[in-house]
């Protein structure tokens, strides 16, 4: 039986999620024994044509070219998995969605007329059908391996959609929001990281994006009561998942008082 063909693609992104795959040091050889990696620019010059059994797509769509490319990748891929906040919600570069991109290009580039870009940075799922999304900035190594393993075995991946609080409790952490008064986005953020930040006494800042139906209207006043300023609240939601429904400026109460 031919081994499944795996391709790793990159659109607008920092490469961090692809690096997570290389980071699987111990498991990388085992993985290489199970699949043929036929396209993975970060790791190998090998570049074989499709079709592909599994495509991992990193990055968001920010140019007309990207949009076209992701359509071609989709056509060639039996299973398409998006990896990371850029691919699943548009990434930090989606800050442009709430500003004027022409102003940005004018400020940054000497010849803005050379730049061809879209007004928005969008998730892959806004353009093509996605079979599975892996959240995070960057993604979690264990989740990536679990997903690939599950795909190879033809079983359901164990990627829970509950809040980060579940992972905190799983680790036996004392809740730092309650015991220390540290503002934390854990209750509205999807699990996956293993509650890294709260485990080191730092509030979750939401890099795995919102849970389904995040109740930010209730959490935001509590963040304010714990001393977070209006601007700090604005900023903590305006990071890697700024365009995700629930975190985006247009889908949460703007000020604590508006809840």
């Amino acid at each position: 039986m031919a081994r499944p063909k795996l391709a790793v693609w990159k659109l607008a992104s920092c490469d961090g999620c692809q690096l997570t795959l290389l980071d699987c040091q111990d498991e990388l050889l085992a993985l290489a024994a199970e699949v043929d990696i036929v396209h993975f620019a970060e790791a190998t010059k090998t570049d074989l044509p499709g079709p592909y059994d599994v495509s991992l797509v990193e990055g968001s769509v920010t140019t007309p070219d990207d949009a076209e490319r992701v359509r071609r990748i989709r056509e060639q891929s039996a299973t398409l998995v998006t990896i990371g906040a850029c691919a699943t919600s548009g990434g930090i570069q989606a800050l442009r969605n709430f500003a004027d991109v022409a102003e940005f290009t004018a400020a940054v580039y000497a010849r803005p007329d050379y730049i061809e870009t879209l007004a928005t940075s969008t998730a892959i799922a806004d353009h093509v059908t996605v079979d599975f999304e892996l959240r995070g900035c960057p993604i979690d190594k264990r989740q990536l391996l679990e997903l690939i393993t599950a795909l190879l075995a033809g079983r359901k991946p164990q990627i829970p959609a509950h809040s980060v609080c579940f992972e905190c409790k799983n680790r036996g952490n004392t809740c730092i929001m309650v015991a220390h008064g540290t503002p934390c986005l854990g209750p509205v953020t999807q699990a996956g990281c293993g509650a890294i930040c709260p485990s080191y006494n730092r509030g979750c800042y939401g890099c795995f994006g919102p849970v389904a139906n995040p109740n930010t209207a209730s959490l935001i006043p509590q963040l304010a009561r714990l001393g977070m300023s209006e601007i700090a609240i604005e900023r903590v939601f305006s990071t890697f998942n700024v365009a995700a429904p629930g975190f985006s400026p247009d889908s949460r109460p703007a000020r604590p008082g508006d809840a």
Partner: peptide, 22 residues
């Protein structure tokens, strides 16, 4: 927030799920 903290902190809540991994 439907975060689940109450049930996990509660000394009597016992519900579980089952996960298969390979």
């Amino acid at each position: 927030l439907t975060c689940g903290n109450c049930t996990m902190a509660c000394p009597t809540c016992f519900c579980t799920t089952v996960e298969d991994v390979s």
